[in-house]
């Protein structure tokens, strides 16, 4: 039993963090708010260059052949950076779905960075980054479809998060490529939902850490009564509470990645737990972050808004709190279980 990441996984995470720190600055994010696409093709090419777009694509299709556990730390970094490009949806959600459906050509295009893929969380839902992406994975009834974005009519729906690009999609299912339908379609939809919620949870975890950093920095520098306000317990305790929620949201997110990667039967419950814990951490980081920034926290100028708005958006994406809590509750009230199967620290080998 080992619940830690390997040295290689940590090193990779650190190098991606450094890359995103340099390439995705707050200034560059703000600059992109004012462009129509809000996205940067060059950055996407650079992410592909690093092997990130093809991380979960098999080696046969030109990818790195890694799994959800390898990627979860990087999804966290995407959150920390508030990365606008749809790396998490393409890698963590679309790739496993396309892999299951055997779409080798699209997978190869993902690995080279030629294509991004946008995904629809549930039937009729708005699709993030539909215009930037070459392909869309859409749902209708019990079927999952692969649609070229050129074949769909997209209409931009403005988000309260200026970094988001959401689209309503009109398309013709009869002309589209079916990835799965019937029972297999329903199962694939469930899988997509879990992957999407996991990706959102990991990003929320990263966002939460970024907001803590911003708040710690600000309260360490801002002086009142002749001292940094961060030395006052009333201020400190706000951030300590956020630190607890954030630190304790890590394990369920990693646990969920493990369960998803290993197709464990408890994966849905674990994903819901991860999404709930990370949402709570990030929303509290946003709320307390504004509070300890004082009036500055309420301004357009302070970068905190970039991350808090993304957190609020992702908190509502891929299942509401109520929905995820209901999934956990039904597992808790399910058939009586002792400390045995599923209740022990680890699963039996």
């Amino acid at each position: 039993m080992n619940f830690t990441f390997s040295e290689d996984q940590i090193l990779f995470r650190d190098s991606v963090r450094e890359f995103l720190n340099n390439e995705v600055t707050a200034e560059s994010l703000r600059a992109r708010w004012d462009t129509p696409s809000g996205r940067c093709k060059e950055l996407w090419a650079a992410l592909a260059e690093l092997g990130l777009t093809g991380m979960l694509v098999s080696e046969a299709n030109g990818g790195l052949g890694m799994n959800e556990i390898d990627f979860v730390l990087l999804a966290e970094e995407c959150g920390r950076a508030a990365l606008p490009e749809p790396l998490v949806d393409t890698v963590l959600v679309a790739t496993p779905v396309l892999q299951q459906a055997g779409k080798d050509d699209v997978l190869a295009a993902i690995a080279t960075g030629q294509s991004a893929v946008a995904v629809q969380a549930t039937e009729g839902a708005l699709v993030a980054d539909a215009e930037f992406s070459e392909y869309l994975i859409l749902q209708e009834n019990s079927a999952v479809y692969l649609v070229s974005s050129a074949d769909a009519t997209l209409e931009l729906q403005e988000s309260i998060d200026p970094g988001r690009r959401l689209y309503s999609v009109s398309w013709d299912a009869s002309q589209a490529n079916v990835l799965a339908d019937g029972d297999r379609g329903v199962a694939l939809q469930a899988k997509m939902f879990n992957l999407g919620a996991l990706g959102a949870a990991a990003q929320l975890l990263g966002l939460s850490q970024r907001m803590i950093e911003l708040s710690v920095n600000y309260t360490s520098e801002r002086n009142q009564f002749g001292k940094p306000i961060g030395s006052f317990q009333a201020v400190k305790h706000h951030l300590a509470n956020v630190a607890v929620k954030t630190e304790f949201a890590k394990a369920p997110v990693y646990r969920a990645a493990y369960s998803v990667a290993h197709n464990l039967s408890d994966a849905a419950q674990h994903v819901s737990h991860a999404k709930l814990a990370a949402t709570e951490a990030a929303t509290q980081a946003a709320k307390s972050g504004i509070q300890v920034h004082g009036a500055m926290g309420y301004t357009w100028e302070v970068d905190l808004q970039i991350f808090m708005k993304r957190a609020w958006a992702l908190a509502g994406a891929w299942g509401s709190r109520g929905e995820h809590k209901a999934r956990v509750a039904s597992a808790v009230f399910g058939p009586e279980r002792s400390l045995g199967a599923g209740q022990t620290f680890a699963s039996a080998s």
């Binding site: 360490s220 961060g230 030395s231 006052f232 317990q233 400190k236 951030l239 300590a240 630190a243 607890v244």
Partner: peptide, 19 residues
């Protein structure tokens, strides 16, 4: 809990120490 929060903030987050 109050002492724990002080420890978390000062040792975990590196916030300025209280006098």
């Amino acid at each position: 809990n109050q002492v724990q929060r002080n420890i978390i903030a000062e040792r975990g987050l590196g916030m300025p120490k209280e006098q």
